[in-house]
Amino acid sequence: MLVHSRTGRWTAWALFAVLFVPLFALPLLVILAASFSTHWSGAFPSGPTAAHYTAAVRGESLQALTTSLITAVTASVIALTVGTWAALAAAALGKKGRRVLDALFMLPVAVPSVVVGLAVLVAFSQPPMLLNGTRWIVILAHTVLVTAFAHQSVSAAIRRLDPMYEQAAASLGARPSYVLLRVKLPLLLPSLNAAAGLCFALSMGELSATMMLYPPDWTPLPVLIFTATDRGSLFTGSALAVVLMAATLLALLAVSRIRTRASYR
């Protein structure tokens, strides 16, 4: 305990509330309130309605949601596979090799998403890999962007994994492939789950690279939110944003449930 006096403590808590509530809690509440309103000209929104939601689960909105979900799941699965493979391969390499591999897979974090979008656009708009105009270019860009995070969290988990399990397995006569399948991957499962949740959330909210790449028939939710607000439909945009947040939260919740069941210690 840092502050011992009652007044001191209340002052600290008041300061916290004054900073925290308007900056972090209010924005999310405001979006939620707006999504149920038709007007906002004054201190509070008015004209309560659920119409934005009935619209949000139909037509192009529903399509955008499924587009986002498919994109996020596909990108996460590919990213997790590639990222985990790379992390495992890096862990088996010597110190130098590991650093090179880690640096390579970390690079997409440092490169602006817009530039990733531009690079993918430049590279895949020409034969032999003509993907521009298809959904695959969006999925590909998302995969690139989230692979780095998958790799980062899985390699951190591998570093935390006590080598004694691997050694115990080896002393019992298990070959490396058996150790990988029966010991390492099961022990990494909680971290893989967490990484999957992270990838999914990032992909669901991705806007920068998507704006450069999306074809008309593959419009993810964030793009739809932007076009809605851009043409002034702030309340529809808010409802879509709530749908986006809810979908992300649900997925994270599901993943964390798996994680608690899969954590052994």
């Binding site: 979006i31 992270l198 959330a201 939110i225 607000t229 939260l249």
Partner: peptide, 9 residues
Amino acid sequence: SFPSFLITL
């Protein structure tokens, strides 16, 4: 885990 543009909105 939420996208940044929600804040601007």
